[in-house]
Computed example of a mutant assay.
Amino acid sequence: MKKRRLGGAAVAFGVVLAVTGLPAQASAGNRTADALAALPLGPAGLAETRTTQTLQPGVTLTRIVRGAVDPAHHWTVEASIPGGDTSPDPDAPPTTLKDKASADELAAELRGDGFDARAEQVTTPRTTDYAGGTLGWRVRIGSFTSQSAAATERIRVINAGYRGSVTYTGWDGAT
């Protein structure tokens, strides 16, 4: 099994803030209006868009989007791996992480049913008080450019008798 590294460039993210209409001096002490407008959302120089909408007098909704989409990340369907014989409790509910053999078995079954399934190793880095290493194996299906396309595939997965959820690979925890 080839281990894939997910990560790389900045991932776009958005922040939604509700700001009351308090004057800058009243809400932030001695800071200027320019200092209030600057938010530390990622490294300096990232592309940024801001949209504002007045919800009612004195309440403005500001949406800030910074960064760019990392082409290495995509939407996918994460299948739930059944308990089965390799579980201490064969009647246990399906889980996201399991041993390699169980993940490979489910991925092969899904491929046999026409899905673009793969087993992926999930690791954690070494820290001061944890040795790091493999947490388990997961099964993912497809690679989609939109959440709605992954949701459509999830419905197909469910209709074929499996369980799963839609996830974005940028949420896996890599930089």
Rank of each mutant, 00 (worst) to 15 (best):
G7T: 10
R50S: 12
V19S: 04
Y168N: 14
G29C: 05
T124M: 09
Y168V: 02
R4V: 12
L22G: 09
N30S: 13
P57W: 11
P125V: 05
V16H: 13
T169D: 09
D113V: 00
G170E: 11
G132D: 02
T96S: 12
D113I: 00
S146Q: 09
V77Y: 08
S87A: 13
A101W: 00
L61W: 09
T51G: 15
R111K: 15
A10D: 10
Y168H: 15
T145F: 03
P43L: 13
R118E: 14
P82T: 10
A150L: 08
T76E: 01
K100S: 01
G42L: 11
T124F: 00
S80W: 10
G58V: 05
G67D: 04
A26D: 14
A24F: 12
A12W: 07
P93C: 00
A117C: 11
S27E: 10
E78H: 11
V122N: 05
A9I: 04
T167G: 07
F13I: 00
L110S: 01
Q56R: 15
G42R: 08
A131P: 11
A79D: 03
D129F: 13
G58K: 05
P88G: 09
R156D: 14
D34I: 03
K100A: 08
A92I: 06
P88S: 10
A33M: 09
A12D: 07
T95Y: 08
G7E: 14
V11K: 00
S165M: 07
L46W: 14
D91V: 05
A150Q: 07
M1H: 06
A47E: 14
T127S: 14
K98L: 06
D89K: 13
A108V: 03
G8K: 05
T152Q: 13
L17F: 01
K100T: 05
A119I: 05
Q121L: 08
R50N: 10
S165G: 06
E48Q: 15
S143M: 00
A37Q: 04
L46M: 12
V65K: 03
V15M: 03
A9G: 13
G29H: 08
D99I: 02
L41R: 05
D85M: 01
N159I: 01
